[in-house]
C-alpha cells in the first residue's frame, strides 16, 4: 500500500461523492457515481483485493450506470429546486 496514493484517491472520492449529492443535474450525478465506482475499484486494487475490484468495476461502473441512465430516460434530467 502506498500511503500518498491512497490519500489522493480517497480525497478525490470524497470530493466526487459530495458533488454527486449536491448537483442538480441528474445525468452528471450518474456520471460522477460512475467515476466514484471506478476510483473505488482502483482503491480496492491498491488494497490487493482484486476480486472485489473486479466486481466493483463490472457492477458499479458498468451495469449500475447503464441502469441509472435507463431509469433517467423515463424522467426529467434536472432536479427541482
Amino acid at each position: 500500500m502506498i500511503f500518498e496514493l491512497d490519500l489522493a484517491l480517497l480525497f478525490l472520492i470524497v470530493i466526487i461523492a459530495i458533488v454527486a449529492i449536491t448537483t442538480r443535474d441528474l445525468l452528471s450525478a450518474i456520471m460522477l457515481l460512475c467515476a466514484y465506482s471506478f476510483l473505488m475499484a482502483v482503491v480496492w486494487v491498491e488494497m490487493h483485493s482484486v476480486d472485489v475490484a473486479f466486481t466493483e468495476a463490472a457492477v458499479g461502473a458498468g451495469a449500475t450506470t447503464a441502469f441509472l441512465i435507463a431509469a433517467l430516460s423515463r424522467t426529467k434530467r434536472w432536479e427541482k429546486k
Binding site: 482484486v50 476480486d51 475490484a53 473486479f54 466486481t55 463490472a58 457492477v59 458498468g62 451495469a63
Partner: peptide
Amino acid sequence: PGGGFQGGV
C-alpha cells in the same frame, strides 16, 4: 479473480 457473477455481468 473473477467468477460466475462478474462474468455474467
